[in-house]
């Protein structure tokens, strides 16, 4: 009995050190100014999955609002139809791709030419390069959105909050031309003007396009863009851990049997 208690004690010690390490790392990673807004994300947790509707609406927000400045250069049109994503039908994805134009070439005459995008193409970028993007946006580069959620401390909660964090600057704070106040932004100053406003677009599925709704949808979409394999990761993880627990139990009893041959506590 005493041995067991000691064992449990040791395990608790070990786990608390582990927890401390995790805490220190995450704590240091997300030094924010304001407390972030929270919402119920469907993709969190052991069995977390994306809300298909939110992903499709989020894609709409991204193309109609964000994509005019923000690129998403690591995502391809084919991804939109893949399992675990927005899961548009093949016809829908083909239509989406065909609505964009990409420059291809050179052809047999050595000329570049423009053609409709194919499934295998990456999302078309709003600007040719970083410099062009900066020039068009008052010197600030609108960051690429492919992994944006993972590139910000606070992740989805941060993006979700930022989109709703536009306010009038507190008195005493002077903002330069083209700079906006956002209570969740690092330093509270942001070059992007408030991108969303109620009913800025009309959802295909009839959902009311409030700022909150759009923020949630587009953030869900960005999460998927950053982690396209999140669903299979969760599913595989659950199986892997159940498997490991079963094997651990089997090995534990095998160990007990083997050690019963010598007079000793394991």
């Amino acid at each position: 009995m005493k041995v067991l208690i000691n064992k449990v004690k040791n395990l608790i010690k070990l786990l608390s050190i582990l927890a401390l390490i995790t805490f220190v790392t995450t704590h240091s990673n997300s030094a924010e100014s304001a407390k972030l807004l929270k919402t119920d994300w469907s993709f969190k947790g052991l069995f977390g999955k994306f809300d298909r509707g939110a992903l499709q609406r989020g894609y709409q927000v991204y193309t109609e609002v964000c994509a005019s400045c923000h690129s998403m250069k690591y995502v391809s049109y084919r991804n939109l139809g893949e399992k675990g994503g927005p899961e548009f039908t093949e016809a829908e994805v083909k239509a989406i791709a065909a609505s964009f134009e990409v420059t291809d070439g050179p052809n047999a005459d050595g000329e570049m030419f423009v053609r409709p995008a194919k499934l295998s193409d990456k999302f078309v970028m709003p600007y040719e390069n970083v410099k062009a993007a900066q020039a068009a946006n008052g010197g600030a580069y609108p960051p690429d959105m492919s992994v944006l959620v993972k590139a910000r401390g606070g992740g989805v909660d941060y993006i979700y909050s930022l989109l709703q964090g536009y306010e009038d600057a507190p008195s005493g704070m002077t903002l330069d031309e083209g700079v906006h106040y956002n209570k969740y932004m690092y330093g509270n100053k942001i070059m992007m003007s408030a991108p969303l406003s109620d009913d800025i677009l009309e959802y295909g599925d009839g959902t009311k396009a409030t700022v909150e709704q759009m923020s949630k949808d587009v953030t869900t979409f960005l999460m998927w863009a950053a982690e396209p394999h999140l669903e299979s990761r969760h599913q595989m993880g659950f199986k892997a851990i159940i498997y490991l627990i079963i094997l651990t139990i089997l090995v534990y009893f095998s160990m007990k049997k083997i050690w019963s041959r010598v007079k000793s506590e394991v």
Partner: peptide, 13 residues
């Protein structure tokens, strides 16, 4: 049986 089961499950992994 216990050992065989452990080996079998381990091999699957």
């Amino acid at each position: 049986f216990l050992f065989t089961a452990s080996y079998a499950v381990g091999a699957v992994g």
